[in-house]
């Protein structure tokens, strides 16, 4: 297997502290790698380093087998790698949804007509065609995140870097996002605190700790005590209340 993206001993400081301190990463083609770690561990910085938004002070970024150092190197990388931001408002800046989704294809050299056709096709494929004419800043949070993803997918990236793709989504939109991602062929690096989402999507996991990456496993313990959860009263659950009431 050949690594599509790799970090070799990358050192990167932000605000005086070394967020990455000799980080090694290999993202193999076709895998979906989960990247976990505490808040502020440097997960977002790592994603940014992979597309050249952060410059390492030491070590190398290797993309598709070639070391990347400067902006021109990374411009070719960005044709093939899509980064989904945490805040979709940072990504959606065009007036309407179809224009935003057409933005990437246009930059890839498609004619305006072809770019809009690509945008339409992408929105259709994701079941978001009803949003095409909508004004981006009037979308709901969940719609914004899905449209931001459409904007990336319209560029047909081989690799997706996802920064908390399910964060702050309601159940319906989260399920939608997970179904969408699960149906994609792209290689993925997923930063998330959403363990069930990672369990479903990821094929391997690493943890970022002290500026370095260590292998991790995702698994589930058979629960002797059921995990606490909360949901509405459907017929399946009403009986639990009734049993509890009888017992009392």
């Amino acid at each position: 297997m050949s690594a599509v993206l790799a970090l070799d001993g990358v050192v990167l400081a932000r605000g005086g502290s070394r967020v990455l301190d000799g980080a090694d990463l290999r993202l193999e083609r076709g895998e979906r790698l989960a990247l976990v770690g505490a808040n502020g561990a440097g997960k977002t910085t790592l994603l940014r380093a992979l597309v050249g938004l952060e410059k390492p002070t030491a070590g190398r970024v290797v993309a598709f087998g070639r070391p990347c150092a400067d902006e021109p190197d990374f411009r070719t990388v960005r044709r093939r790698v899509g980064l989904l931001f945490q805040d979709p408002d940072d990504q959606l800046f065009c007036p309407t949804v179809q224009e935003d989704v057409a933005f990437g294809p246009l930059n890839l050299g498609e004619t305006p007509k072809a770019a809009f056709a690509t945008a339409r096709a992408t929105l259709d494929r994701l079941g978001l065609d009803h949003l095409a004419e909508r004004i981006t800043h009037r979308l709901s949070g969940g719609e914004k995140r899905l449209v931001a993803l459409a904007g990336l997918l319209a560029m047909a990236p081989e690799v997706l870097l996802l920064d908390e793709p399910t964060n702050a989504l309601d159940d319906a939109n989260r399920a939608r996002m997970l179904d969408l991602l699960a149906g994609l062929d792209a290689t993925m690096l997923i930063v998330s605190h959403d363990r069930p989402a990672l369990e479903r999507l990821a094929t391997r996991a690493v943890v970022l700790q002290g500026g370095r990456l260590e292998p991790a496993i995702i698994h589930r313990h058979p629960c002797p005590t059921p995990a606490l959860h909360i949901h509405g009263l459907d017929d399946d659950h009403r009986h639990e209340l009734e049993t509890a009431a009888r017992r009392a």
Binding site: V51, R75, R78, F103, G151
Partner: peptide
């Protein structure tokens, strides 16, 4: 940055 990543 978002625009640069989409090759603006």
């Amino acid at each position: 940055e978002g625009m640069r990543l989409r090759l603006w």
